[in-house]
């Protein structure tokens, strides 16, 4: 049989993938599926959408969804604004130091997010390092400031975690921008600033888009930072945690998880579209 060889090759490839696929199926897909199913199951075991209709018509829960999305959007905007100049310097100015730059960017990701968040707690606790500087060492303030449980600190910590993702997305696209295009604009009388807004920025929109979606997705599902640093936010992940651990309303928690998952899937779809357009 002439095509037995490619069939065997395919089979072998499938076998190589099998361990990973089985692992993902058992520990990722099945629980996720089981969890989602629970949200569609009525008390008597039948199918129902009643949880979704009541959830999505409840002002409180809608407010939570809006707050989750707004928080993620704010973190995204701040992250991208901070990331762009960093990416620009990394690609255009760092030269031989770019390797060091990238290491500095990625190094924080090697530490678990819980450790990094604890770091923020240590720094900004009532008797933490920052207050000690301000009150004791520098004497700027008479009484320590309350940082923990303020929205600003929570947002700052999220941005801190997520900026590298935005930087790397933007940098990879910026790397591919032909500098002759910028020189062309300069030759035609555009100032450097004008050149940036007419040429560089539009050509890096894909990188901004990819980075923004990535940051948004992660911020949307962020949990640890908000639990540890507070900030008074009432977001979906926090609510899900409460439902599972305090209220023990598993079905409602599953409903919210599925909604959160849906938001993430929409983002993922947008990102795939963006990437496919780049490739075309």
């Amino acid at each position: 049989m002439s095509d037995s060889v490619p069939m065997n090759a395919k089979l072998r490839q499938a076998m190589l993938l099998a361990p990973a696929l089985i692992f993902l199926a058992v520990f990722f897909v099945m629980p996720l599926f089981d969890n989602s199913m629970r949200s569609f199951m009525s008390e008597d075991g039948g199918f129902t959408l009643s949880r979704y209709t009541s959830f999505l018509t409840d002002r409180f829960y809608l407010g939570v969804i809006v707050e989750t999305v707004v928080l993620a959007a704010a973190v995204t905007v701040i992250s991208v604004v901070i990331a762009y100049p960093v990416a620009y310097v990394l690609v255009r100015k760092a030269g031989r130091l770019s390797g060091v730059f990238i290491f500095l960017l990625i190094a924080p990701l090697l530490t678990s997010i819980i450790m990094r968040t604890f770091g923020w707690q240590v720094l900004f606790a009532r008797r933490g390092l920052v207050n000690q500087w301000l009150v004791t060492d520098l004497g700027i303030l008479d009484v320590p400031l309350r940082w923990l449980n303020t929205p600003g600190l929570a947002i700052a910590a999220l941005v801190h975690v997520l900026v590298p993702f935005a930087v790397l997305s933007i940098a990879s696209v910026l790397q591919g921008v032909d500098r002759r295009l910028e020189e062309g604009a300069l030759m035609l009388g555009a100032s450097k600033l004008r050149t940036f807004f007419e040429v560089t920025l539009p050509l890096t929109m894909d990188g901004i888009g990819t980075g923004a979606i990535l940051v948004f997705m992660i911020a949307n599902g962020s949990f640890v930072t908000l639990v540890l640093l507070g900030g008074g936010f009432q977001t979906l992940p926090l609510l899900i945690y409460q439902q599972f651990n305090t209220t023990r309303d598993f079905a409602l928690a599953s409903t919210m998880s599925t909604i959160l998952l849906a938001i993430a899937l929409v983002c993922l779809w947008l990102q795939l579209r963006l990437v496919r357009r780049q490739g075309a």
Binding site: D178, R180, L181, E183, G184, M187, L188, E198
Partner: peptide, 11 residues
């Protein structure tokens, strides 16, 4: 005015 080898038209 300048014409580049790769034209450098704004894509």
């Amino acid at each position: 005015g300048m014409v580049f080898q790769s034209y450098s038209l704004f894509p």
